[in-house]
């Protein structure tokens, strides 16, 4: 399922001060089976961009195409589109409403008009996939912890079997343990089901670890769209935008500057450890 932004701009009216441009001439192609990291400072247009992917917003200029169909077309089946491009918003509090966790996850599939058996099966599957154990299914979603709520919210979208999963800062406000759990699980789903993932984040560390490609946004424009290694080359430019490269790339850069032959592709801590081991001939613990 291909998704393509062609020259997309989005303007909205802000009270008093005329029009603001949230997106400015966006050209972007979302390829099948790729894990995208979408990065940008607050207000850079990330959330606005992803809301165009499932037709919650329509461009004021330009077009979004999905499998050869213009999403602004009146004949587009929005329900079908939204089940295929699953968007999980930042705050699970904005979507949990049912009496039990299980019923809440059923909401999406039920809106698709599936049979009751199919709905139940999908909800069970989705909850298992995000690691919510069976003893929690009959609890009220409001009694869960922050991390659990977020998992249930993700399950609520996964149950629709989306081909593209879009997550708007799924780890904001979680402790490091919970954050890694959720990201590992998303990464696992991506590997196993060959699902396309778009992960919004402002943590370079997270994105470096999981993403195949990184899209950097600033002031409504796409600045970089490349593999992580290439994006992190532009440390100064990233810092000017209020972003940064993963901390380990700074160390690697310093070492390279000192003349050590370190590969540029090193962007995660694990890779850095390996590279240093290789250089020192594995004598780190010797």
């Amino acid at each position: 399922m291909s998704l393509e932004f062609r020259n997309v701009s989005y303007e909205y009216e802000s009270a008093g001060s005329g029009y603001s441009r949230a997106l400015d001439n966006i050209d972007l192609k979302i390829e099948d089976g790729v894990f995208y990291g979408l990065i940008g400072h607050t207000g850079s247009g990330k959330s606005t961009l992803v809301q165009h992917m499932n037709g919650l917003l329509h461009p004021t200029q330009g077009e979004v195409w999905c499998d050869g169909v213009n999403l602004a077309d009146k004949s587009v089946n929005m329900r079908l589109l939204r089940s295929q491009v699953g968007l999980v918003f930042q705050y699970p509090e904005h979507q949990l409403f049912e009496t039990t966790v299980f019923n809440d996850v059923c909401f999406g599939p039920r809106n698709m008009g599936l049979t009751e058996d199919e709905i139940k099966m999908r909800a069970e599957d989705a909850l298992k996939q995000v690691g919510i154990s069976e003893d929690m299914w009959k609890l009220s979603p409001f009694d869960l912890s922050g991390g659990q709520k977020r998992r249930v919210a993700i399950a609520g979208v996964l149950a629709m079997h989306p081909k593209i999963l879009v997550l708007d800062e799924p780890t904001a406000g979680l402790d490091p343990g919970g954050r890694d759990d959720i990201l590992d699980q998303i990464s696992f789903l991506h590997e196993k089901n060959k699902m396309t993932v778009v992960l919004i984040s402002h943590s370079m560390e997270d994105v470096a670890k999981y993403a195949d490609r990184i899209v950097v946004m600033n002031k409504g424009r796409i600045i970089y769209n490349d593999v992580p290694m290439q994006v992190f080359e532009h440390v100064e430019e990233l810092e000017e935008m209020g972003l940064s490269a993963p901390q380990v790339t700074y160390i690697m850069k310093k070492l390279r500057d000192k003349g050590y032959p370190i590969d540029k592709s090193v962007i995660t801590i694990d890779e850095a450890v390996e590279e240093i081991m290789r250089m020192t001939g594995g004598k780190m613990h010797a």
Binding site: L56, M78, S83, G86, F89, Y91, Q95, G108, N111, G156
Partner: peptide, 12 residues
């Protein structure tokens, strides 16, 4: 925001 979150799950 809530409307959008529910519309993303197929609500209308």
């Amino acid at each position: 925001k809530i409307m959008k979150a529910q519309m993303a799950r197929g609500a209308s």
